[in-house]
Design a protein around this nucleic acid. Structure first.
Lengths: 135, 135
DNA sequence: CCAAAAAAGACTTTATATATCTTTTTATGA
DNA sequence: TCATAAAAAGATATATAAAGTCTTTTTTGG
């Protein structure tokens, strides 16, 4: 359970690659896709989502491409993952407690809250700067 | 992301219900399903899985049904979830590092390991006894 | 105006989740 | 031993989501 989708995996690869480049360097989508081994059309969709929320900046037309939207030390893995996968949500009852008619008596609910908190905490503590650093 | 499936949700409901009954009480599948609001045929499949690994005991024929396989204080939520959902696996690269040709240079890998550890730790710290206790 | 590149939207394919139905096996007790 | 009750097993169906592709449009620089 709890598996990251390909989309999430690809998203991370793509943006970590960008994070390893100078902030002002414009990278072609096709180059990024080739470098991180992701289908270019799929990565395009992902970067469109990133672009809308400012995680990356995009430039159209000749000489266009993508660059990171902010300094890599100010972008967490949590932001990246939630941008494409949606909120970390171990169980739907955690999303809308009021919608869950069991929340009044269900002892499992707080456990899922804790899981959610721990996962968010781990992912929120890692920045793109760390991820892009050479090993 | 990381959402529990219906199957997992149903599995928990069903076995927590059993955990609230005396250990020697045999419960009809149809009664359990009705009590926890789960399609009986689906719950049957789930309990078959539980039965194979001893989480519940099953009895066929007249007077048959299900009971918990062990004391509820000795069954963790982690066991229940992994029994029906498979191992907690935030990313497939965590499953088989040797299969992942990126593991040599990928800095994200250890992060998923930590996520996996935290989730397992939370779920492993909760027993069916606690979950079945009245609020 | 032309070419390059991303944005947007429609569409296809595949896989997984969510069941349901039928048949078989096992056990009880009349 | 026969009828009945109940779970086991296996096949099948449907719905949803994931994964990927294709086409058209918009933007920009030269």
């Amino acid at each position: 359970m709890m598996e990251l989708t390909r989309k999430g995996e690809y998203a991370i690869r793509g943006i970590v690659y960008l994070a390893g480049k100078p902030l002002d360097k414009v990278c072609l989508l096709s180059d990024i896709a080739a470098a991180v081994d992701v289908p270019p059309t799929f990565l395009a969709k992902i970067f469109q989502q990133f672009s809308k929320i400012g995680l990356v900046k995009s430039f159209r037309g000749t000489g266009g491409g993508f660059m990171l939207g902010r300094e890599p030390e100010n972008i967490t893995l949590l932001e990246v993952v939630e941008a494409v996968e949606g909120p970390i949500m171990p169980n739907r009852c955690v999303a809308a407690p009021t919608d869950c008619e069991r929340s009044g008596f269900c002892n499992v609910h707080p456990v899922w809250r804790r899981v959610q908190g721990e996962v968010r905490s781990v992912l929120g503590g890692v920045t793109l700067k760390e991820l892009s650093a050479a090993k």
